[in-house]
Design a protein around this nucleic acid. Structure first.
Lengths: 195, 195
DNA sequence: CAAAAATTCTAATCTAGATTAAAATAATGC
DNA sequence: GCATTATTTTAATCTAGATTAGAATTTTTG
């Protein structure tokens, strides 16, 4: 009987819907996915979605919130458990790559921030900025403790984030590919950071 | 009098339209930009666009074709003029970054390939694949001649392309930022390739 | 099991924005 | 300057797909 509010019938279904929406948005683009596409993926009717979200804009917004939330967790775990800056960076990258190819994913690429309504857009932009800054702080820490090469942290951060965020463009759920990504990509991204 | 077919009144205007469309698509997303947005940017009416493209789908398609064309040129110049694999990779990255932040840009991010009609989609996917393969060949060449570290070229290629393709998400035309990107980003991306 | 609440569906509307036809204006060649 | 062609506009349609109202169904609760 679901004491945990996250496991209530409603929340579970809402969660499934967000996941389905993320799949559709990443695969067919925002304009290319109708609410019918999303609902069909769950064996529902498009109208049923309105029981969970106010409208399409909010569906996107919630997908992005979820993406941001997962990203934040990846970051926090890394900062908590890593010793040096390089270790933290490595852990964060591994965590975030795992999110992109693992089962909790897929995560919606934030391609449509501009079409969010103002309040939502501002909120998403804000958490995105937080996220970027947190990673830059990790790099700064690494430079300070000598584990990370001296570099332009803004550019380096953007470069690494770009690589990670781009994954859904070329990874389409094939398990063997997921394995290869998990194994190789973090090392490739970290390689440029070492002193 | 435009002997050169690329400088005919029509071609010039068509070109301006593609550039304006790329700006809009990158800034407001595909669904977020109406044809009115694009035309307004040029002081035209939305209906005027139909003199140049058959419909919105074709506008996107042409933007992507142009992006692919610019990418191909960046690649070809690098392969032609670079000695070692590492040199070629470096040149290509510099060239492509320049396209993303320079005046010939902006280049449309290919976020909406799935909503292209089949023939167009296949063509764009094909040239994209060509492009990826060409870069992977550069890396192979570098590994063979010892200038590039032994690595998974598929993953490495995707990582670097991701960084470059993501640029429009965080670069919004500020000149000082363009300068910083040109100066720092190529080095950051190449750093992980060196032996 | 019956009543109440939660969830989903059916069957319409409603709307932004793409598209088109025809008229108006601008450029060009002779 | 006139005739022809190229470009753009005005003023409608047309349409996919978002949205809504209310009925139907399923789940929960006591």
């Amino acid at each position: 009987m679901a004491r945990n509010p996250d496991e209530t019938r409603f929340e579970i279904q809402r969660h499934r819907i967000l996941k389905a929406a993320a799949i559709c948005f990443n695969k067919k683009g925002y304009s290319g996915t109708s609410l019918k596409d999303v609902s069909r993926l769950l064996g529902l009717t498009d109208a049923a979605l309105y029981y969970y979200v106010k409208n399409k804009e909010e569906l996107v917004y919630q997908c992005y919130l979820r993406a941001a939330e997962l990203g934040r967790e990846a970051m926090e775990q890394a900062v908590r458990d890593g010793e040096t800056g390089l270790e933290q960076a490595t852990m964060y990258i591994r965590n975030h790559v795992e999110i992109m190819v693992g089962d909790e994913g897929p995560v919606a690429i934030m391609s449509e921030i501009p079409s969010l309504k103002r309040a939502h857009r501002n909120e998403i932009l804000h958490v995105s900025r937080q996220h970027s800054m947190a990673f830059e702080e990790i790099l700064d820490r690494g430079i300070a403790d000598g584990s990370v090469v001296d570099c332009d942290v803004r550019m380096t951060g953007n470069a690494i984030m770009g690589s990670i965020n781009w994954i859904p463009k070329w990874f389409h759920g094939k398990a063997s590919m997921a394995a290869e990504i998990r194994k190789e990509l973090p090392e490739i991204l970290v390689r440029g950071l070492r002193t």
